[in-house]
Design a protein around this nucleic acid. Structure first.
Lengths: 201, 201
DNA sequence: TATGAAATGGACAATTTGGTCCATTTATCC
DNA sequence: GGATAAATGGACCAAATTGTCCATTTCATA
C-alpha cells in the first residue's frame, strides 16, 4: 500500500504503472487485481488509506492546558509536521486537485478533519484575542491555509529548492529551520504589534 | 503548445496522452512527431516554452521610484499575480518536482530568473531596513519562498478549497482577497512592530 | 498557374500496459 | 500431516497508446 501511495503520489492515476507498484511492494501483480479489481480500485484504496491514517493531526486536547502563546506555536508546529511526516499524502492531494478531485469526492471523512482543525484554531485564536495577544481580525481559515501552504511548498518543491537555492530538505536541520520559519512568520502575522515575540528584536 | 502545457501540467509526462494534446490543439497528431520526434520531445519543448515565456516577473525597475512600503506591497502583489496568471506553469513545475526534476535539469535559464528576483528583493528589503521600516533579520529568500508558497497553494488546491471551504477561485473577487491576504501577511511579518501598516489596528 | 513546402486524415504497425489464466508453491489451521 | 485458502510466477491475451505511412490537400510564393 505504501508502494501504491508513493507511485500514485508522484505520477498520478494515469501516470502510475501497476507493474512498478507490484515490483516495489514485493507482491505479485496478480494480487492487485485479486484484491482491488483494477488500477483505479487500488488508487481509491490508496487515497482512503492515506486519509484514514491514524494521525490527521492527532489529539489536540493538550493544547488547552498550555499558555496561549506556546499553544499557538505548538499548533503551528504540529500542522507543519503533519506535512513533513506524510509527503506522499501531500503530493497525492495535489495530484487529485490537478484532476479536479474526481476520486476524492467519494471519501467524506476528509472535510470532517479540516472542520475540526478549524474549530481548534478558532478556540485558540479567540483565547489569544481575549488575552490581548492576537489581533482581532485574524481569520482561522486563513491561518490554517497559510501554514498548509508553507508545509506543502517545502515538501513539494524539494528539487527546485535544491537546484535553485542549494537547500537540502533531506537534512533534519533544514526541516527544523523551515519549521521555525513558519512558526515565526505566522506568529508575527497574527500577534498584535505590541505582543512581545521571538528571539529577534 | 498551450494544449500540451495544459495536459502535461495536470497529468505529468507519463499520464498525458498525445492524442488528447493533438485533439485539444486542433492539430494533427502526426505533427507532434513531425516537429518534436516523440512525446518526451514535446514535453521538453513545453517546459522550455513555459520558462522562456515573456513575463517571468517582467520589468521591476519602476519599483525603485516608489516609496518603500508601496514598493514592497507592489513586489509581493506581482509575485503573487505571476502565479495566478500562469497556473499551468505552476502545476508543471510541481509535476517536475514530483519526478525529481529530471527534465528541467536541461534548462539553465531557470535559476537565472530566480537569482535576479532575489537580488531585487534584497535591494528593496535593504532599503526598508535603512529606513527603519523592515526588521533587520529578514531573509530575502524566505520572503520569496513564502509568497510563492501562498501563490502555489491557492492555484494548486482549487478543488480542495471549493470542496472543504466553499471558496471559488474562479471568481476574480476571490483572487483579489487572496492577494490581499498574502500582501497583508508578508508585510506584517517583515515590517517592524513599530511600523504602521494596514487598514486594521 | 506552377511549385514545393507545410499540414492533414486516417488507417495501421509497434510497443507498452492493463488485466487474466493456471499450475504450483507457500502459509494456515485443525 | 492433511485440507484449505492465500499467494506466486510468468506466460499470455486484450486493450490502449505511441509512433508511422501515404496519398491527398492546403497554402504561400514566384
Amino acid at each position: 500500500m505504501d508502494a501504491a501511495l508513493s507511485e500514485f503520489a508522484s505520477k498520478g492515476l494515469q501516470g502510475a504503472r501497476a507493474e512498478e507498484i507490484a515490483r516495489q511492494s514485493g507482491a505479485a501483480k496478480r494480487m492487485i487485481y485479486y484484491y482491488f479489481t483494477d488500477k483505479e480500485g487500488l488508487y481509491r484504496a490508496a487515497i482512503q488509506h492515506a486519509f484514514s491514517s491514524p494521525s490527521a493531526l492527532g489529539n489536540l486536547s493538550d493544547l488547552e492546558d498550555m499558555a496561549t502563546l506556546p499553544a499557538l506555536e505548538e499548533m503551528i508546529g504540529r500542522t507543519f509536521d503533519m506535512h513533513v511526516e506524510r509527503p506522499d499524502f501531500v503530493r497525492l492531494l495535489l495530484q487529485e486537485n490537478f484532476q479536479h478531485g474526481e476520486h476524492i469526492r467519494t471519501i467524506p471523512e476528509i472535510s470532517q478533519g479540516t472542520r475540526s482543525t478549524i474549530a481548534t484554531w478558532r478556540k485558540l485564536l479567540d483565547r489569544g484575542i481575549r488575552e490581548g495577544l492576537v489581533r482581532e481580525d485574524v481569520d482561522p481559515v486563513k491561518v490554517h491555509h497559510s501554514i498548509s501552504a508553507l508545509g506543502q511548498f517545502y515538501i513539494s518543491n524539494q528539487y527546485s529548492l535544491k537546484a535553485n537555492f542549494d537547500i537540502d530538505s533531506s537534512l533534519p536541520e533544514t526541516v527544523a529551520l523551515q519549521k521555525k520559519h513558519v512558526i515565526d512568520m505566522i506568529c508575527r502575522w497574527i500577534l498584535r504589534p505590541s505582543t512581545k515575540f521571538g528571539p529577534s528584536e
